[in-house]
Nucleic acid binder design. Structure first.
Lengths: 231, 231
DNA sequence: CGGTGGTTTGATCAAAATCAAGTGAGGTGG
DNA sequence: CCACCTCACTTGATTTTGATCAAACCACCG
């Protein structure tokens, strides 16, 4: 969720009424079956979306960082089909749907930009499907961390070769469709091979390009304007 | 992609200029890295979206039937991040982005409805992630076929307990993140247990409710208005 | 100092992949 | 009309990947 909102758009959104809320780690912002009347813009913290199967298995669907609006879709979908959860302490700005809709009617450019954000969101889901469907455990791990690193860097929240991701191995497992035991072993392998390190929530990649190649990472799907110009 | 476009919206879209094209089976409508200037409304046939990894593994991302606009996102995302492929012979109506944008500016209701379509699309992706990430092979199969059946039925293209899905087991494997060999065995198991049959592209479920329970299917994520009213 | 949540390890097991070789039906050309 | 070709499906044997189960370990914290 980056790069497509122009500065004017951002400031237009910034002028909407909002309520800032501080959330503790592990708290949920909204749940499946809720009918929210607001969406939240992340100010700080790491937030994820997740679903739980009938058997109780959890699957993370996306990670979100400052600048994202993880539940923007609720503007047009009355009922939540998944949970939105703060993985760390987080600060979010709640904006009423009503106000977004007014802005949206008055400023078609903002409308298009917001729509575009949700479309990029969907593109990231598509790549996530490929990740859990067709890559082995090590590739999944590298690809996921590379993606998060990319987006952090694009948001000015760190370097892709070294960024902070305060997340538990069990959460990583739920994101990758693996068990936490296996995640642990995969991380050890990657560390041993010198590809990638994940210690105390700091992700380090010595050779960024190598990780990209090994994981089959192609930034196209993020639809950052820079990568599109390069294409 | 159903149920949210009102009759007026549909007829407004129907009045846009379009070009009908007949496509042979296995032909591609657009490819990753393309920059389409049009989107296609499916008139008939079965269409899918897919990505291919660096290693050449293919992952299907969604199925689309009559009434869907599988590449609507290209209206706001310049570059295709995946392929759109006709799995069977298909008839599609190409509509220029330019014309959709004009309609979109003039009729805010249509704009909202189209946006909503792409949001439902994203919701289906989310469930697809859960499917490949957290369900075993048999559940994946049942869940996928149940979903397609649901959407076919909603479109008046058959009953969920018995519908036509002209697709190869290898394609099914690519949709489920499995191998075609394993798909074959899973289908045999399901047939033997009397849960579900898939022969000559005819899907039959004797006990629809049983399949829903076994696969953990909850129609919420399809955001059909009927299921929302029921909630 | 003892809890607690997260990580690590080892042993065993199950699911699905892989490899390799059939079968079988529909379509084509001699 | 039949031989044969192709593509999809099927089967069996074997291997791999990752899951499961169970028990430490370790750091931080009240």
């Amino acid at each position: 969720m980056t790069s497509s909102l122009s500065d004017q758009d951002v400031s237009a959104i910034g002028r909407l009424p909002f309520v800032i809320k501080e959330l503790p780690a592990r708290s949920s912002i909204c749940r499946e079956r809720d009918r929210p009347v607001q969406s939240c813009l992340i100010v700080s913290g790491l937030i994820c979306r997740a679903k739980v199967t009938g058997e109780g298995a959890r699957q993370l669907l996306s990670f979100h960082i400052a600048g994202d609006i993880p539940d923007l879709q609720s503007l047009h979908l009355e009922v939540m089909d998944h949970d939105v959860i703060a993985l760390t302490e987080a600060k979010v700005a709640f904006i009423a749907h009503e106000d977004i809709r007014r802005l949206w009617r008055e400023q078609p450019d903002v409308a298009a930009a917001l729509w575009r954000e949700t479309l990029i969101d969907a593109s990231v889901f598509r790549e996530w499907i490929v990740n859990v469907g067709r890559r082995d455990a090590a590739q999944r791990m590298m690809h996921l961390l590379f993606e998060v690193g990319c987006r952090m860097q694009a948001m000015g929240l760190g370097e892709i070769g070294s960024f902070h991701m305060p997340i538990t191995q069990a959460d990583l497992a739920d994101a990758l469709g693996l068990t936490s035991v296996h995640v642990n072993r995969v991380l050890q392998d990657l560390r041993r091979e010198g590809v990638l390190d994940f210690k105390r929530s700091l992700v380090t990649m010595n050779d960024v390009e190598r990780v990209a190649v090994l994981s089959g990472f192609d930034p196209l799907y993020l639809h950052h304007s820079c990568s599109e110009e390069a294409a």
